[in-house]
Design a binder for these strands. Structure first.
Length: 290
DNA sequence: AATCTATCCTGTTAGC
DNA sequence: TGCTAACAGGATAGAT
């Protein structure tokens, strides 16, 4: 589920509960998620103080006080739930704590927070790496620029899309070109930029530097991600903030999951279409996206 | 080299 | 109501 805005929302929640605190205990309830958890996973984290929770693309990174880094990816269905000591249910004796289904890892923090990682489909990832080699880690090494960073721009797209014969939609989903977009936000950004998803990527490239289309596109990517972060992400099925509250950017979708809907540009009058493009649902307004 | 396809896994939902 | 099939926000190994 989670794309960059959802991961960023989760990061902000984890900061509250983890930064500056010591991981006092780790419960590991299965040996693997998408990949096997590293050897000695719980032992290597126990007693470590969390210096910072950062994000690279859709990866969450917990910098620890021994120069190691806990790398976490939510895959399609991963979520974190933070329970603070104050949240403890009043002892009325009628609500025994029910074991959460598909909760695979639990961190118990020195401040009393309980942080449960739940991931029904188990496409998520956890790994521990050394801080000095973090950007060379196999999961992070090939990632393109952060779309909200200063290195991502129309000029950057102009260079990276040159000669790409694949569709602009597939290109934006490629984490090597720009890192953090997924299916929802690619659809939304292309709508904002009024670019048809099936356009060959190279057809947007201009020899002498980025043209209007890529300028619009770079701006659209940034604006849709910023607005989604401000809304706490999009809650379709799995995504919730770490306190359980829902994001609400799904109400702002212009095209995603709006097949047969009227184009939100009222003067357009087009009808949103859905088509499967390289195996993924694509939504767009054929009238204003060209 | 670039680009597609199938696949990991489970839960939800659309359709019969 | 109950069953089955299709589909889901990701990423990648392997085929072409």
């Amino acid at each position: 589920m989670p794309e960059l805005p959802e991961v960023e929302t989760v990061r902000r929640g984890l900061r509250q509960a983890m930064e500056g605190e010591v991981i006092e205990r780790v419960e590991q309830r299965r040996a693997d998620l998408r990949f096997p958890l590293p050897r000695g996973f719980a032992a290597r984290l126990t007693g470590r103080r969390v210096i910072a929770i950062t994000r690279r693309a859709k990866y969450l990174l917990a910098d620890l006080d021994d120069s190691s880094v806990l790398i976490m990816h939510l895959g399609m269905s991963g979520s974190f739930a933070v329970t603070l000591p104050d949240d403890a249910p009043v002892a009325d004796g009628f609500a025994p704590p029910r074991r959460v289904l598909h909760e695979h890892v639990v961190f118990h923090m020195s401040g009393g927070a309980r942080i449960g990682y739940r991931d029904p489909r188990r496409f998520g990832i956890m790994d521990i790496a050394s801080a000095d080699a973090i950007s060379a880690h196999r999961l992070l090494a090939d990632l393109g620029p952060e779309p909200l960073g200063s290195s991502f721009s129309a000029g950057c797209l102009n260079r990276r899309l040159a000669g790409k014969r694949t569709s602009i939609k597939a290109a934006l989903l490629d984490q090597r070109i720009v890192a953090g977009l997924g299916n929802i936000y690619v659809n939304e950004a292309l709508f904002r930029a009024r670019i048809a998803p099936a356009r060959p990527a190279h057809s947007l490239v201009r020899r002498r530097g980025p043209g209007q289309e890529l300028s619009h596109l770079a701006r659209a990517v940034k604006s849709v991600l910023r607005e989604a972060i401000d809304a706490g992400g999009s809650s379709l099925r799995d995504h919730a903030r770490t306190d359980g509250s829902l994001g609400y950017f799904q109400h702002a979708f212009a095209v995603y999951d709006r097949e047969h809907g009227r184009c939100v540009r009222v003067e357009c009058g087009g009808i949103v279409r859905r088509e499967v493009q390289s195996g993924r649902a694509t939504f767009w307004c054929p009238r204003c996206q060209r």
